[in-house]
Design a binder for these strands. Structure first.
Length: 677
DNA sequence: CTGGAGCTCATTTTT
DNA sequence: TGAGCTCCAG
């Protein structure tokens, strides 16, 4: 038997060997799904003789795609792996659009608007419109994204509108798309949607891509939305060269348009689908899995699945009642300190998981107080920082002069004495002539609308930027960008504006870090030539940023949301805030979305390898007032015999559910609540 | 254009 | 409670 399968268990082996038709692998948490995908790729290349360039593996995150690339290159050596596609959905979409940009009517160097850019554009459109105020920004942005993910074009949205409100949003949607087109830009959703439309409209283009991608593997399939599924379906065609791996119990992104039912739809679209379940878990103790299975059994299931492991029974799950959220954070900190000594383990063996980012703040304070090193993943992203957005806008404008949004962001940053009236006149002129603002700057006719002094300043800026652009396409792009930052004296501008020199220095450091990243990306050109356009696109798609990698090696407790923890594992896991209104979150209770919250809890539990500790606070400060809480309903869904309850006296669902039983715990909580701060 | 007072709104967020 | 915003006075 092949070397690629003899380390696998029988189910995994079956999943790797089944190549004569579509294959759905239901892979429970920790069941070795990445092994299956990577070994299947190796098997296809080395045993089936399929050239690597005809195989594509698609993931959702850059992290997953990076890991997959690494693991494949460990299995398939050298030239045999050349041309293999391992990328995120969005990256694949980007590559398709790039190759076919002419057909699609995009100029090369088109911009990619991230979520933030898209919102900024929407805000502007809504402001101009007046019908909708920007209070609804979130709603509108979400609705448009949902429409795009469900393949609904503006005209369809308008005709299906149920209310005037919806019709208004549909109108904004139309203008939003129009603006993107004018800016020669796409948003994240378009990266998937555009290839789908292309393939539906041009069968010959689709055929070409089908010839290229003969075998497709998709990771985390439960997270696909409608347009992603359609993209998969189109690429696979009726040849059935498809393996998808997923777990319906780990679907936690339905609120973002993911369609976990895509897992079962597969059966309809591919009748010959082979279903393989991976139930052996290589991560956790049997106790942890029993608890996880017991919990998730409360959800309805299309496919029954029960995880098991050979890792031994393991310790009981602890559920700890704390007086309030302060005591909870304190308790977790103390647990980490004592467990670390008792078990002789590292800080990095611990993770603290929570529902909402705001819960991290108190934990941070307590960890700091006890000098426990930690790192938080998530929070304000690097790319949300104003200085990064500024430099990125310069770069975007260099690559795509039609990007009016980028133009407007940086035309007067740093100050160039180009005021609103000048820009209004310029915008008006550009609009009339149906050209971009940058292009309008070069027109002779503009002199009639703008005072000579302003015009001169604007044109000097444009010429300078063009000059930098030429340098960027030369031999030393990074040097050119550095030159650009120096030309505009961005550093001086930062110092002038920042509240302290320290802040300015920090911001400048971020910019140097950005330039370093660009340098790395351009150097990593293994064989293929990477243009400045590619580098910027990679940055916008958050690819190739090795921030996290440095931190992974440090000995730090990991703090993150339950969502962010998917796919990760830690020896000792704390889940905090196990309360009604928090873990099932209140809005989910109101919207009757308990099942997804239960899956979220399931994801949290299955992150743990050795021990799992859940905490909850009897009282919690919420919007400034102290609220009596009751513990999460999910705690009652855990098997009694595997759980050790602390601070609640005898655990008794019926009596304890409501307040009032005079247990030691409730007495303590009364003390805690009454104590002055 | 900046800074401070006042108002309002509180999930999750792979790309 | 407190972060993030708008709005108005300088």
């Amino acid at each position: 038997m092949s070397k690629h399968v003899n380390k696998l268990n029988p189910r995994q082996r079956e999943a790797v060997l089944h190549i004569d038709g579509p294959c759905l692998v239901l892979a429970g948490a920790g069941s070795g799904k990445t092994s299956v995908i990577t070994r299947k790729i190796a098997y296809l290349i080395e045993e089936c003789g399929m050239p690597a360039r005809h195989i594509a593996a698609v993931t959702f995150t850059n992290k997953a795609s990076r890991e997959m690339k690494e693991r494949v290159s460990g299995l398939v050596k050298g030239v045999a792996a050349r041309g293999l596609t391992v990328s995120t959905f969005h990256n694949l979409g980007l590559n398709i659009i790039r190759r076919e940009h002419k057909q699609l009517g995009f100029k090369p160097g088109f911009s990619i608007f991230d979520a933030e850019d898209a919102r900024a554009l929407l805000k502007e459109l809504m402001l101009k419109d007046g019908d909708l105020d920007s209070d609804h920004l979130d709603l509108v942005a979400n609705q448009i994204s949902n429409w795009k993910n469900d393949l609904t074009v503006p005209e369809m949205a308008a005709s299906k509108a149920q209310s005037t409100g919806e019709a208004q949003i549909a109108e904004i949607y139309r203008r939003y798309n129009q603006a993107l087109k004018a800016y020669n830009a796409v948003d994240f959703d378009d990266l998937i949607l555009t290839p789908v439309r292309l393939f539906s409209e041009y069968p010959e283009v689709l055929a070409r891509w089908q010839r290229k991608i003969r075998y497709l593997l998709v990771d985390e399939y439960q997270d696909t939305n409608s347009s992603q599924y359609l993209l998969v379906k189109l690429l696979v065609g009726d040849r059935g060269g498809l393996t998808v791996v997923g777990d319906d119990d780990q679907s936690i992104y339905a609120w973002r348009g993911a369609r976990p039912e895509n897992l079962f739809l597969l059966k309809k679209d591919f009748p010959s689908l082979e279903l393989i379940k991976l139930e052996q878990n290589y991560r956790s103790t049997s106790r942890i899995l029993r608890v996880a299975n017991h919990l998730i059994a409360h959800n309805p299931h299309e496919f029954e699945k029960a995880l098991w492991s050979e890792m031994g029974l393991g310790e009981e799950i602890r559920v700890i009642r704390c007086a309030n959220e302060d005591a909870e954070a304190e308790r977790v900190a103390m647990e980490i300190l004592s467990q670390r000594l008792k078990r002789q383990i590292k800080f990095r063996d611990f993770a603290i998981l929570y529902r909402g980012n705001h819960q991290a703040r108190l934990l941070e304070i307590k960890l700091q107080a006890h000098q426990i090193p930690y790192s938080i993943s998530g929070g304000t992203s690097f790319f949300a920082r104003a200085e990064i957005k500024d430099v990125m806008s310069y770069l975007r404008l260099i690559v795509n002069p039609d990007d009016d949004n980028a133009f407007l962001r940086i035309i007067n940053t740093p100050r160039r004495q180009i005021g609103t009236s000048t820009l209004e006149a310029l915008g008006h002129y550009a609009n009339q002539r149906q050209i971009s603002m940058f292009a309008a700057c070069h027109e002779i006719g503009l002199a009639e609308h703008i005072p000579a002094a302003s015009l001169d300043r604007i044109q000097r800026f444009c010429h300078w930027l063009q000059h930098i652009g030429e340098l960027c396409r030369g031999a030393e792009p990074v040097a050119a960008i550095k030159q650009m930052v120096e030309d505009i004296d961005y550093e001086g501008w930062l110092h002038q504006n920042a509240s302290s020199p320290k802040v300015a220095e920090k911001r400048m450091e971020n910019i140097w870090y950005l330039l370093e990243s660009i340098k790395t990306i351009m150097q990593k050109a293994d064989g293929e030539e990477i243009t400045i356009e590619d580098a910027i696109a990679k940055l916008v798609l958050r690819d190739m940023l090795d921030r996290q990698a440095e931190e992974d090696d440090l000995d730090q407790v990991q703090l993150m949301t339950l969502h962010a923890s998917k796919g990760l594992e830690y020896p000792h896991v704390f889940m905090v805030g196990m309360e009604e209104d928090l873990l099932p979150h209140r809005t989910s209770i109101e919207e009757d979305n308990i099942e997804e919250e239960r899956r979220l809890t399931y994801v949290g539990i299955t992150r743990a390898q050795k021990t799992l500790t859940m905490t909850w606070a009897g009282k919690r400060k919420q919007y400034g007032e102290i609220i009596e809480t009751s513990y999460s309903r999910f705690l009652d869904e855990l098997p009694e015999e595997d759980v050790n309850w602390e601070g609640m006296g005898q655990h008794n669902p019926d009596a304890n559910r409501a307040q009032g039983s005079a247990t030691l715990g409730s007495l303590l909580s009364m003390l805690g609540g009454a104590k002055p701060k």
